[in-house]
Amino acid sequence: MRGVRWLKLKYMAFRDFWSIYRSNKLGVVGLIIIVFFIIMAIFAPYIATHDPNKTNPAKYLLPPSEEHWFGTNEVGQDLFSRNIYGARISLLVGFLAAGVAVFIGVFVGLISGYFGGWIDEVLMRITDFFLVMPALVLMIVIAALLGPSLINVILVIGALSWSGTARIVRSMTLTIKEWPFIEAAKASGAGHFKILFKHIFPNVMPVVYANAALTISNAIFSQAALVFLGVGNVSDISWGSILHYAFSSGALGTGKWWYFVPPGIFILLLIYGFILVGYSLEEILNPRLRHR
């Protein structure tokens, strides 16, 4: 019975939230874009018209045609199929790297805000360091030293993208820990661990969701940029690697637009989707930004 009631409560909370979210036009557009790309990633083998890895030296750098919708690259691979498969890596890196970043950020923010004192001082100095540092340059240097692999890129992006989340969670924690029910929990003998993760954590989460959407969009951009510069794994099929080869093979400089334009539009759309969702969540959850 308890489980059913819990589900019902969750469902009602979700329905209430959805009815507010639905009225936010930009947010709905963002959600549609994201769902579009998730479907594209899952069903890539059925959407793709060719084997994305099959090379054909006789058909290099062909412009778009009925046979090859997005043309072919310098080794004769079908670019439409490669672009469809490319959605997988971007989404994977986006979600996983942002997961790492949000995990670190929430943890640091909670500890820092709750305990205060020298712990707070030390953690916030470190956070400020990462907030101020040019993240992309740092990522380039570390990824170049670690060597190119998908997991390295995910870890590097995750490990360098948590500072914004940590700042927000910390300031939320500072407010929430003064609320009466925390006092009550303390009085009834709850330990630090229980208060932090059972009472404060759930109240911080809504803001984290809004922030996570922006973190995902940053991770997608960073991955594409790293691969474009040649410090990620350029042999995976991703939008970044298509752009990398379009640039480094000289196809861009000689005006092969069909090679360069589509992956960029896909990256742009996907990032735009996450930014719209993040922005709408912030507008809904932050009362100051709500309508006057």
Binding site: F221, F228, L243, F247, L252, G255, F260, V261, Y272, I275
Partner: peptide, 15 residues
């Protein structure tokens, strides 16, 4: 504009 990958926008201007 914020969502446009910098390097792609640059490439578009090259084209």
């Amino acid at each position: 504009l914020y969502s446009i990958p910098t390097f792609w926008l640059g490439g578009m201007f090259i084209l």
